[in-house]
Design a protein around this nucleic acid. Structure first.
Lengths: 190, 190, 190, 190
DNA sequence: TATGAATGAGCCTTCATTCAT
DNA sequence: GATGAATGAAGGCTCATTCAT
């Protein structure tokens, strides 16, 4: 319990610092300080800073997936399920600035590329989202494009929009979110 | 001549290093080394590392814009002009891995946010692309969404796709490019 | 204990280097080396080089004041008290070459001017020496001159003499010291 | 002519920068800039930075001596001649902040010590001031103290007072100057 | 297990000096 | 003679990581 507790404190502190200040602004000592633990303690839970960063990413990813899958309309029509994905994703990220900023930092770094490579060429345990895309392609609901292009068409704009919302460049409301997700749907559907 | 020569060597070296190794992997000494100049020389051309990075970004941005505007069908129908933008952009970026990787590093950093803020809230000298978007909105060709959302819908997937191409995750050909750009068009058009 | 130990080692090393080689001749790395600590360790005890220098100065000043106040004839006649100040000061400084050289370096530097300004215009917590001067002025024992001029008349020659002694330009003994301090007394007294 | 002109420009620029910013604040490039010459040009007139500094000191010293000897009452009584030295010196230095600040920088540095050593133990070309001190000692007007102590008693306070005037810590007028020089006379006379 | 002082390699930047023009 | 771009050693400082307690 203790162990998990500290680990969590460390992760939270690092997440916040990286999100707000970038990797540069998150030295281990500062993370430890913010977490209220000794600097050396971090190394009990993570082999080194890279491992810590990757650990945080996994956690964030898991949370996002969990959010998306909550109330997921398993048996609804394809469009409804995609709209669910999109709106929940935007609602989640737009209200989780730290997670979003962190993820963006992560994606552009040696980490990001490796992680993406792993994901695409890796053992490929089927996840529910990929499956849904696959299904939509097979049912000829989606354009006959490679999976990763469809991913880009559907998710990239949403993440960008969340970032702009967080940075105060736009002001999302539910209607705007639905319109935007709808636009992404238009991009992928036949 | 000499002067331009050195400046250019420095820029190329820095671009390459940042693109391949990230900001972390591009210390000034290494940039100087790769450029074949003394470490101090960089500071004759750029006030400091930040200025160097920003300088490179501006150069890359200018090049991309130049590429996009080449053979731009000024008087063609809106859709044709957008397709031109999209395909030229993808062709350019997919064949310019260093520029693309650099730009992505740049966008996620204090630099990037500042730059974006400047662009959105700044003096706002009308650029040709914004004008085209504006026009398409007014003509009710585009969905009635904020400009920055339309930008995200149209450009984000394209850039993501270029990245995947460069990293070898997909294999673009002209047909695929056109289909992808077409999908982006579907996202923004009414 | 450990902490004080290292801090002290650093201070000693810096004092010695600055005294012997000037500020220029005392890079942080060399100080660390001489102190037998890592370069980074210095920054655990002092925010930066400036703070280190100022810290040393305060320490030296405190030591000098302590030396001067030892056996101070609180209730003796004014002249005796001044002679005490002068002779003890010279004896102390003439036997503390490092302190003296350091203080001289310090006085001529941005530090020195700031420190002097602070002292003269600052909150002005009354120190025992200023009080004694004030008393001597009020009792019309001293010439009616501004305090800082009296300070100069009494202390400047003494410090100069100490420096010459240390540099081997003269050879002080107790008699000479007393004669010199007596001369300074002649300068300030009516 | 040209040559002397440039040399002078360089000296003036360096004097000003060193006086105002200290040695740290006077890089060769900045001196060259302020002098309106090329950086390399300085090296035509001075072997290196040290030589430049020493050259400036010699110039300043010569000017001060010249000022002191102007209207020097060759045949006046000893006291009058000393009062002349003192008052002229203070008047000169108090109105020449750059020279004074420079000299103070110079004195506390490897330069200063070497220069002083040279002066005391050097070939010892008799200068007019030393001669006057010597004379006063022999006539038993002065206390029987070593020459360098008498120098310290007479000159140190005056220079200190000038510095305080320049830094705005006191406000000298002719009467105050005379009183102060008089006090210095009291220090050295029997 | 937890700590945090200590480390030292490495970073960005400055600047005295040189040398091709 | 004059220039100033180029150099690279050196400086102040940071920070991931270790280890004695």
């Amino acid at each position: 319990m203790e162990k998990c507790d500290k680990r969590d404190l460390i992760v939270r502190a690092a997440l916040e610092l990286v999100a707000e200040q970038g990797f540069h602004g998150a030295p281990m000592a500062m993370i430890a300080d913010k977490a209220g633990v000794g600097a050396g303690t971090i190394y009990r839970y993570f082999e080194n800073k890279d491992a810590l960063i990757r650990g945080i990413y996994c956690m964030v990813e898991a949370r996002v997936v969990a959010a998306i899958l909550k109330d997921y309309p398993d048996n609804g029509p394809v469009r409804e399920r995609f709209m669910h994905f999109g709106t929940v994703l935007v609602n989640y990220l737009a209200s989780a600035p730290l997670e979003l900023r962190f993820v963006e930092q992560f994606h552009n770094s040696p980490f990001g590329v490796d992680h993406r490579r792993e994901k695409i060429f890796g053992k490929g345990e089927k996840d529910i989202i990929s499956e849904l895309f696959q299904e939509a392609i097979e049912q000829q609901i989606f354009k006959p494009l490679p999976l990763s292009i469809l991913f880009a068409l559907f998710f990239s704009p949403l993440i960008d929009v969340c970032r702009d919302q967080i940075l105060g460049f736009i002001n999302l409301d539910q209607e705007l979110i639905e319109q935007t997700v709808g636009a992404c749907w238009d991009a992928v559907r036949r």
